[in-house]
């Protein structure tokens, strides 16, 4: 920046300031203002109303449902992410390219389409519907459906973070460990895992944030049953449609808080993941 400034002192300084100004104003307008407004509205009728809204059984249930979903989805996706990245980065096998593409698919497909696909597969009229009904397993409009679709949507996060790191590190450390007598599991636990731990955590944080906030896909497969299959984002929408704006914003504030915490953790990890 100093270099350009010495070349074109007047013009580039002005251009620089304008660009920074535009970027800051747009961020304030489109990101910070709505976030702040959530809390303003949530507290607009005072602490007590806010607390009552949060502690409302329906809201508590939604929080619980979202938490359970994240608790199941994140570890599964961490395991999947490590396995997929490990397979792709450290091995050569037929279909490797296809696996790389498959990992990315959930990023390029709208979650709502994922939801519909699951519905067509596991729903009552779906491909596996009759069989599932015979086994008395309820997937759609129940927790399993919510978990499955969230898992699909958030599948790439961990793999995407870990894969480039594993590829950059290559296989020499693992080979060294093998010549020193380490078993496959020892190689993984003592060499591979410590090398990717920050990227892994970073991916897990992104995955958690997304799992908690997922709306489109879940909205299709959950059936929006009040107090039963409403996750937090769905609950916010529901309250909003009920014209309970304060309640909606109170629920939204919990989501926002989770997102902000994730953001702080993510920023802290950013430097470490290397």
């Amino acid at each position: 920046m100093t270099a350009t400034a010495t070349h074109l002192p007047g013009r580039s300084r002005r251009a620089e300031r304008t660009l920074i100004g535009v970027a800051v104003s747009l961020s304030l307008l489109f990101v910070a203002a709505p976030l702040a407004y959530i809390f303003v509205r949530a507290f607009s009728q005072g602490w007590q109303v806010y607390a009552a809204n949060i502690l409302h059984p329906m809201t508590l249930h939604a929080i619980w449902l979202t938490t359970i979903t994240a608790i199941v989805v994140v570890p599964v996706n961490v395991a999947f992410g490590i396995a997929a990245a490990w397979a792709v980065a450290k091995h050569r096998f037929p279909g490797r390219g296809i696996l790389v593409t498959m990992i990315e698919i959930p990023f390029s497909i709208s979650p709502i389409i994922a939801g519909i696909c699951y519905l067509l597969l596991y729903g009552r009229q779906g491909l596996l519907g009759p069989w599932l009904r015979a086994q008395d397993i309820q997937v759609m409009f129940a927790l399993p459906g919510i978990i499955l679709v969230t898992m699909f949507v958030t599948a790439p996060f961990v793999a995407r973070e870990v894969l480039p790191l594993m590829q950059a590190q290559g296989t020499e450390q693992e080979q060294a460990a093998v010549t020193l007598g380490a078993s496959g599991w020892q190689v993984f636990r003592r060499v591979t895992l410590p090398n990717i731990k920050w990227a892994l955590l970073y991916g897990a944080v992104l995955c958690t944030a997304r799992a908690v906030g997922e709306f489109g896909g879940v909205s299709v497969v959950s059936g929006n049953i009040r107090g039963q299959t409403n996750t937090l984002p769905l609950h916010v929408e529901l309250l909003f449609n009920d014209l309970n704006a304060v309640g909606a914003f109170a629920a939204a504030s919990t989501l926002t808080l989770i997102a902000l915490v994730a953001l702080v953790v993510k920023a802290a990890l950013e430097g470490k993941r290397g």
Partner: peptide, 15 residues
């Protein structure tokens, strides 16, 4: 694992 060979890599491959 069972050959008990000491291998020194070109780029060291230290942990």
């Amino acid at each position: 694992q069972d050959r008990r060979i000491g291998f020194v890599f070109q780029h060291y491959a230290l942990f």
